[in-house]
Protein backbone atom coordinates (compact mmCIF):
# COMPACT_ATOMS: atom_id res chain seq x y z
CA UNK A 1 0.00 0.00 0.00
CA UNK A 2 2.75 2.36 0.98
CA UNK A 3 4.75 1.45 -2.10
CA UNK A 4 1.80 2.24 -4.32
CA UNK A 5 1.46 5.63 -2.72
CA UNK A 6 5.15 6.34 -3.13
CA UNK A 7 4.95 5.26 -6.74
CA UNK A 8 2.00 7.60 -7.36
CA UNK A 9 3.72 10.38 -5.50
CA UNK A 10 7.13 10.12 -7.17
CA UNK A 11 6.58 8.53 -10.55
CA UNK A 12 3.08 9.43 -11.71
CA UNK A 13 2.14 12.68 -10.08
CA UNK A 14 5.04 15.04 -10.98
CA UNK A 15 4.98 14.45 -14.75
CA UNK A 16 1.17 14.50 -14.74
CA UNK A 17 1.14 17.89 -13.04
CA UNK A 18 3.75 19.24 -15.45
CA UNK A 19 1.74 17.93 -18.41
CA UNK A 20 -1.38 19.64 -17.13
CA UNK A 21 0.48 22.93 -16.67
CA UNK A 22 1.97 22.72 -20.17
CA UNK A 23 -1.42 21.95 -21.69
CA UNK A 24 -2.95 24.93 -19.90
CA UNK A 25 -0.13 27.23 -21.06
CA UNK A 26 -0.48 25.89 -24.58
CA UNK A 27 -4.26 26.40 -24.52
CA UNK A 28 -3.93 29.89 -23.04
CA UNK A 29 -1.26 30.86 -25.56
CA UNK A 30 -3.39 29.74 -28.50
CA UNK A 31 -6.58 31.38 -27.16
CA UNK A 32 -5.16 34.62 -25.79
CA UNK A 33 -2.39 35.08 -28.35
CA UNK A 34 -4.80 34.22 -31.18
CA UNK A 35 -2.23 32.02 -32.87
CA UNK A 36 -3.54 30.82 -36.19
CA UNK A 37 -4.50 27.12 -36.13
CA UNK A 38 -2.43 26.76 -39.29
CA UNK A 39 0.68 27.48 -37.22
CA UNK A 40 -0.25 25.88 -33.93
CA UNK A 41 -3.57 24.20 -33.20
CA UNK A 42 -4.76 24.24 -29.59
CA UNK A 43 -4.74 21.13 -27.42
CA UNK A 44 -8.49 20.79 -27.71
CA UNK A 45 -8.31 20.82 -31.51
CA UNK A 46 -5.58 18.15 -31.39
CA UNK A 47 -7.65 16.05 -28.99
CA UNK A 48 -10.61 16.38 -31.29
CA UNK A 49 -8.44 15.33 -34.26
CA UNK A 50 -7.27 12.26 -32.33
CA UNK A 51 -10.83 11.22 -31.57
CA UNK A 52 -12.10 11.90 -35.09
CA UNK A 53 -9.22 10.07 -36.80
CA UNK A 54 -8.73 7.37 -34.21
CA UNK A 55 -9.28 4.46 -36.59
CA UNK A 56 -6.98 5.94 -39.19
CA UNK A 57 -4.27 6.65 -36.62
CA UNK A 58 -4.50 3.20 -35.11
CA UNK A 59 -4.22 1.56 -38.53
CA UNK A 60 -1.23 3.74 -39.48
CA UNK A 61 0.41 3.02 -36.11
CA UNK A 62 -0.12 -0.70 -36.67
CA UNK A 63 1.62 -0.45 -40.06
CA UNK A 64 4.56 1.56 -38.72
CA UNK A 65 4.71 -0.51 -35.56
CA UNK A 66 4.82 -3.82 -37.39
CA UNK A 67 7.57 -2.52 -39.71
CA UNK A 68 9.56 -1.21 -36.73
CA UNK A 69 8.99 -4.43 -34.79
CA UNK A 70 10.13 -6.69 -37.61
CA UNK A 71 13.00 -4.31 -38.38
CA UNK A 72 14.04 -4.55 -34.74
CA UNK A 73 14.00 -8.36 -34.78
CA UNK A 74 16.03 -8.38 -37.99
CA UNK A 75 18.63 -5.97 -36.59
CA UNK A 76 18.79 -7.98 -33.38
CA UNK A 77 19.40 -11.22 -35.25
CA UNK A 78 21.72 -9.81 -37.93
CA UNK A 79 23.60 -7.64 -35.43
CA UNK A 80 24.18 -10.59 -33.10
CA UNK A 81 25.41 -12.74 -35.97
CA UNK A 82 27.79 -10.01 -37.14
CA UNK A 83 29.03 -9.57 -33.57
CA UNK A 84 29.60 -13.37 -33.41
CA UNK A 85 31.73 -13.14 -36.54
CA UNK A 86 33.65 -10.11 -35.20
CA UNK A 87 34.36 -11.93 -31.94
CA UNK A 88 35.82 -14.93 -33.74
CA UNK A 89 38.40 -13.23 -35.90
CA UNK A 90 40.49 -10.18 -35.24
CA UNK A 91 41.02 -9.77 -38.95
CA UNK A 92 37.26 -9.76 -39.63
CA UNK A 93 36.72 -7.33 -36.78
CA UNK A 94 39.39 -4.88 -37.89
CA UNK A 95 38.34 -5.00 -41.52
CA UNK A 96 34.60 -5.01 -40.92
CA UNK A 97 34.15 -2.54 -38.10
CA UNK A 98 34.67 0.64 -40.16
CA UNK A 99 31.86 -0.51 -42.45
CA UNK A 100 29.65 -1.33 -39.50
CA UNK A 101 30.22 2.25 -38.42
CA UNK A 102 28.93 3.25 -41.84
CA UNK A 103 25.39 2.07 -41.05
CA UNK A 104 25.54 4.19 -37.91
CA UNK A 105 26.87 7.38 -39.45
CA UNK A 106 25.21 7.49 -42.88
CA UNK A 107 22.15 9.77 -42.75
CA UNK A 108 19.18 7.45 -43.11
CA UNK A 109 17.35 10.15 -45.09
CA UNK A 110 20.12 9.92 -47.65
CA UNK A 111 19.94 6.19 -48.24
CA UNK A 112 16.20 5.64 -47.81
CA UNK A 113 15.47 6.79 -51.40
CA UNK A 114 18.16 4.38 -52.59
CA UNK A 115 16.56 1.51 -50.71
CA UNK A 116 13.20 2.32 -52.31
CA UNK A 117 14.86 2.53 -55.71
CA UNK A 118 16.44 -0.91 -55.27
CA UNK A 119 13.76 -2.73 -53.37
CA UNK A 120 10.60 -1.06 -54.59
CA UNK A 121 7.75 0.64 -52.81
CA UNK A 122 6.10 -1.24 -50.03
CA UNK A 123 6.24 -2.44 -46.49
CA UNK A 124 9.42 -4.49 -47.00
CA UNK A 125 11.46 -1.37 -47.85
CA UNK A 126 10.26 0.29 -44.65
CA UNK A 127 11.28 -2.81 -42.68
CA UNK A 128 14.71 -2.66 -44.30
CA UNK A 129 15.17 1.04 -43.47
CA UNK A 130 14.17 0.40 -39.87
CA UNK A 131 16.52 -2.57 -39.51
CA UNK A 132 19.50 -0.63 -40.92
CA UNK A 133 18.99 2.09 -38.34
CA UNK A 134 18.69 -0.40 -35.50
CA UNK A 135 21.70 -2.51 -36.48
CA UNK A 136 24.71 -0.66 -35.09
CA UNK A 137 23.95 -0.59 -31.34
CA UNK A 138 23.53 -4.37 -31.45
CA UNK A 139 26.80 -4.89 -33.34
CA UNK A 140 28.88 -2.62 -31.12
CA UNK A 141 27.40 -3.68 -27.77
CA UNK A 142 27.36 -7.31 -28.82
CA UNK A 143 30.98 -7.31 -30.00
CA UNK A 144 32.32 -5.68 -26.85
CA UNK A 145 30.18 -8.00 -24.71
CA UNK A 146 31.46 -11.09 -26.52
CA UNK A 147 35.06 -9.94 -26.17
CA UNK A 148 35.07 -8.78 -22.56
CA UNK A 149 35.01 -12.18 -20.91
CA UNK A 150 36.76 -12.97 -17.61
CA UNK A 151 40.22 -14.33 -18.63
CA UNK A 152 40.09 -16.86 -15.77
CA UNK A 153 36.90 -18.30 -17.24
CA UNK A 154 38.63 -18.57 -20.62
CA UNK A 155 41.45 -20.47 -18.87
CA UNK A 156 38.90 -22.74 -17.23
CA UNK A 157 37.37 -23.54 -20.62
CA UNK A 158 40.80 -24.16 -22.18
CA UNK A 159 41.78 -26.38 -19.27
CA UNK A 160 38.79 -28.57 -20.06
CA UNK A 161 39.76 -28.67 -23.73
CA UNK A 162 36.65 -26.73 -24.77
CA UNK A 163 36.09 -26.21 -28.48
CA UNK A 164 35.84 -22.76 -30.04
CA UNK A 165 32.13 -23.33 -30.46
CA UNK A 166 31.70 -24.22 -26.77
CA UNK A 167 33.57 -21.08 -25.75
CA UNK A 168 31.29 -19.00 -27.96
CA UNK A 169 28.02 -20.67 -27.01
CA UNK A 170 28.54 -21.51 -23.36
CA UNK A 171 30.74 -18.59 -22.32
CA UNK A 172 30.92 -15.62 -24.69
CA UNK A 173 27.27 -15.43 -25.70
CA UNK A 174 25.80 -15.69 -22.17
CA UNK A 175 28.41 -13.19 -20.92
CA UNK A 176 27.31 -10.79 -23.66
CA UNK A 177 23.59 -10.97 -22.88
CA UNK A 178 23.55 -7.90 -20.59
CA UNK A 179 25.41 -5.85 -23.21
CA UNK A 180 23.08 -7.13 -25.95
CA UNK A 181 20.07 -6.17 -23.83
CA UNK A 182 21.43 -2.64 -23.41
CA UNK A 183 21.98 -2.49 -27.17
CA UNK A 184 18.46 -3.75 -27.84
CA UNK A 185 16.98 -0.90 -25.79
CA UNK A 186 18.84 1.69 -27.87
CA UNK A 187 18.07 -0.14 -31.07
CA UNK A 188 14.29 -0.45 -30.62
CA UNK A 189 13.81 3.32 -30.38
CA UNK A 190 15.88 3.81 -33.50
CA UNK A 191 13.84 1.32 -35.51
CA UNK A 192 10.70 3.41 -34.88
CA UNK A 193 12.56 6.42 -36.27
CA UNK A 194 13.71 4.24 -39.16
CA UNK A 195 10.21 3.07 -40.04
CA UNK A 196 8.77 6.60 -40.00
CA UNK A 197 11.60 8.01 -42.11
CA UNK A 198 11.25 5.03 -44.44
CA UNK A 199 7.57 5.80 -44.93
CA UNK A 200 8.39 9.34 -46.03
CA UNK A 201 9.82 7.81 -49.17
CA UNK A 202 7.80 4.67 -49.58
CA UNK A 203 4.13 4.78 -48.76
CA UNK A 204 2.27 1.54 -48.94
CA UNK A 205 -0.15 2.45 -51.72
CA UNK A 206 -3.38 4.38 -51.67
CA UNK A 207 -5.30 2.28 -49.16
CA UNK A 208 -2.78 1.55 -46.49
CA UNK A 209 -0.18 3.86 -44.99
CA UNK A 210 1.86 4.34 -41.85
CA UNK A 211 2.44 7.25 -39.50
CA UNK A 212 5.31 8.61 -41.59
CA UNK A 213 3.14 8.95 -44.63
CA UNK A 214 0.36 10.45 -42.50
CA UNK A 215 2.80 13.05 -41.15
CA UNK A 216 3.97 13.83 -44.66
CA UNK A 217 0.59 14.42 -46.29
CA UNK A 218 -1.03 16.24 -43.34
CA UNK A 219 1.93 18.64 -43.43
CA UNK A 220 1.51 19.13 -47.18
CA UNK A 221 -2.16 19.87 -46.74
CA UNK A 222 -1.59 22.04 -43.67
CA UNK A 223 -3.94 19.88 -41.58
CA UNK A 224 -2.12 20.84 -38.42
CA UNK A 225 -4.39 19.24 -35.83
CA UNK A 226 -4.10 15.89 -37.64
CA UNK A 227 -0.34 16.33 -37.99
CA UNK A 228 -0.09 16.82 -34.23
CA UNK A 229 -2.25 13.77 -33.68
CA UNK A 230 0.07 11.71 -35.92
CA UNK A 231 3.15 13.00 -34.08
CA UNK A 232 1.50 12.05 -30.80
CA UNK A 233 0.78 8.58 -32.12
CA UNK A 234 4.42 8.19 -33.26
CA UNK A 235 5.66 9.14 -29.80
CA UNK A 236 3.30 6.69 -28.14
CA UNK A 237 4.44 3.97 -30.53
CA UNK A 238 8.08 4.56 -29.63
CA UNK A 239 7.26 4.56 -25.91
CA UNK A 240 5.33 1.33 -26.35
CA UNK A 241 8.21 -0.32 -28.22
CA UNK A 242 10.74 0.79 -25.63
CA UNK A 243 8.59 -0.38 -22.72
CA UNK A 244 8.05 -3.77 -24.32
CA UNK A 245 11.77 -4.29 -24.96
CA UNK A 246 12.63 -2.96 -21.49
CA UNK A 247 10.26 -5.42 -19.86
CA UNK A 248 11.63 -8.27 -21.93
CA UNK A 249 15.27 -7.49 -21.12
CA UNK A 250 14.50 -7.12 -17.42
CA UNK A 251 12.77 -10.50 -17.45
CA UNK A 252 15.69 -12.12 -19.29
CA UNK A 253 18.34 -10.65 -17.00
CA UNK A 254 16.35 -11.57 -13.92
CA UNK A 255 16.06 -15.15 -15.07
CA UNK A 256 19.77 -15.38 -15.81
CA UNK A 257 21.21 -13.49 -12.93
CA UNK A 258 18.59 -13.25 -10.19
CA UNK A 259 19.77 -9.69 -9.71
CA UNK A 260 18.92 -7.46 -12.65
CA UNK A 261 19.34 -4.18 -10.83
CA UNK A 262 22.92 -3.49 -11.75
CA UNK A 263 22.22 -4.19 -15.42
CA UNK A 264 19.34 -1.75 -15.69
CA UNK A 265 20.16 1.29 -17.70
Amino acid sequence: MKRWRLWLQDVVLPPAVLLLVLLLVWHAAVEVGRIKPILLPGPLAVAEAVVRNFGKLARAAAFSGSAAGLGFLISLLAGTLIAFAFSQSKWLRCSGYPYALFVQTVPIVAIAPLIVHWCGRGWHSVVLTASILGLFPIISNGTSGLLSVDPDLLDLFRLNNASRWQVLWKLRFPSAVPALCAGAKTSCGLTVVGSIVGEYFVGYGSRSYGLGYLILFTTDQLRMAELFAAVLASTLLAVLMFSAVSLATTAILQRWYDAPIEHRR
Binding site: D150, D155, L156, F157, L159, N160, K170, V177, W256, Y257
Partner: peptide
Protein backbone atom coordinates in the same frame (compact mmCIF):
# COMPACT_ATOMS: atom_id res chain seq x y z
CA UNK B 1 43.23 -34.50 -15.53
CA UNK B 2 44.31 -31.05 -14.40
CA UNK B 3 41.94 -28.83 -12.41
CA UNK B 4 42.45 -25.22 -11.42
CA UNK B 5 40.98 -23.19 -8.57
CA UNK B 6 41.26 -19.48 -9.23
CA UNK B 7 41.62 -16.61 -6.82
CA UNK B 8 38.00 -15.63 -7.49
CA UNK B 9 35.31 -18.31 -7.53
CA UNK B 10 35.01 -17.73 -11.32
CA UNK B 11 31.52 -19.19 -11.59
CA UNK B 12 29.11 -18.65 -14.46
CA UNK B 13 26.47 -16.36 -12.91
CA UNK B 14 23.67 -17.59 -15.18
CA UNK B 15 24.12 -21.19 -14.06
CA UNK B 16 23.04 -22.79 -10.81
CA UNK B 17 25.53 -24.42 -8.45
CA UNK B 18 24.87 -27.88 -9.91
CA UNK B 19 25.13 -26.57 -13.48
CA UNK B 20 28.43 -24.88 -12.66
CA UNK B 21 29.85 -28.04 -11.13
CA UNK B 22 28.71 -30.06 -14.16
CA UNK B 23 30.51 -27.72 -16.59
CA UNK B 24 33.80 -29.69 -16.89
CA UNK B 25 31.88 -32.81 -17.98
CA UNK B 26 29.98 -30.79 -20.56
CA UNK B 27 33.12 -29.20 -21.99
CA UNK B 28 34.91 -32.54 -22.17
Amino acid sequence: RVAFVFQDPTLLPWRTVAENVRLPFELQ
